[in-house]
Design a protein around this nucleic acid. Structure first.
Lengths: 206, 206
DNA sequence: GTCTATAGGGCGATAGAC
DNA sequence: GTCTATCGCCCTATAGAC
């Protein structure tokens, strides 16, 4: 009797490994962006992705490896997006390119976790593994602007500076203080054409 | 015999509470700057200050309260420093002031932990307590530039953008890649007059 | 004013079943 | 491919002695 093989329903939908991987990476990007590398738990990632905590670890080996993968993905999207903006406008002037790449950057902000995960990586430069990855990624972006985008050193630095301020305003959730006149002015002067977007994205509860 | 009161040597030097407090706050600033709010442990702070871990907690109540105190101190020094730069040059043009306050900012970088602790606070905007403190502090600086420094909205935003890039380069330890031509160029174009300082400060092992 | 000892909770990772 | 159970570490905070 106990040896009868019963038909079993799968309580959790199975997925191709690659699809599940994408799902977890997306969830991880959001969680790392919100809480940072150390503050994020593999359990929070697992919940956000609808899988068990040990499965997240099983998939990526360690939390550090997962974070590195998130960083790599974010960087890849950033580079792809900038590269497209550059290559689609081969005759653009530097100022023109600055605006176009800036627009591409603002589009990336749609995924708040993406840029914020990068930011969290940037402030962990003292970590031998994460710091090295962050430096390498930041330099890749600089090189892209400088050598493929034709930016001067100053133009590239100015562009990056604006990006860092934008990231900071999103990270700090400046739009939570949107009723404050100065906060509103700051947000609108940083992202004049995208301030609506920035406000939505930099709110604690979007 | 056992009731004889023996003279006792103090194994650990006693200090006035206020002095010890300063010592711990200085240590905490360095540790939080290096590892962030979550990554820093009260034990690491205690070791850096040469006291026991429970004593650190006893002094500030919680790790969160300690971090808030570090943030408050950092902000205070930033504001004081900017205010001095402004008030000492009442007839300076906006560009002039930009340079003078920029120089004051670079001086603050001498204490790497100071600005980096702030940066770690800035990316934790989602935290109800720390996020609120970080927003309030960031806005105070903006108001100072705008209303006491006489900066336009754009000038203030540009100044802050440069500051965020500077902080990021220090946080990411960009100078660890100083042998890379692009990294060197970026550092020198961001801090032309202070690149030596920036290099020293943004190295993992200073 | 400062320490030692330790409780208590959370988290990353492993083992192993299905 | 995915889960449950659980180990062992680390970390904050408390208790209490000196």
């Amino acid at each position: 009797m106990s040896s009868v093989t019963l038909p079993k329903v799968e309580p959790v939908p199975r997925m191709r490994a690659e699809d599940r991987r994408e799902l977890v990476l997306t969830a991880a990007t959001a969680v790392f962006g919100e809480r940072g590398y150390v503050g994020a738990t593999t359990d929070a990632v697992a919940r956000a992705a609808g899988v068990s905590q040990p499965y997240v670890v099983r998939m990526f080996g360690t939390k550090e490896a997962l974070f590195l993968e998130v960083l790599g993905r974010a960087l890849e999207r950033l580079i792809d997006s900038f590269t497209s903006a550059i290559d689609e406008n081969p005759t653009a002037t530097p100022e023109d390119l600055h605006h176009r790449i800036g627009a591409a950057y603002a589009d990336l902000l749609m995924d708040r976790g993406l840029l914020l995960s990068l930011m969290h990586g940037f402030v962990l430069g003292a970590d031998p593994v994460i710091g090295a990855a962050a430096r390498s990624g930041f330099l890749q972006v600089y090189r892209l602007l400088r050598h493929r985008g034709g930016f001067s050193a100053k133009e590239a630095a100015d562009f990056l500076a604006g990006g860092m301020l934008l990231n900071t305003l999103v990270g700090i959730r400046m739009a939570d203080d949107i009723d404050d006149a100065d906060a509103r002015e700051l947000i609108e002067s940083v992202a004049p054409t995208k301030s609506e977007l920035l406000v939505r994205l930099s709110r604690t509860r979007p």
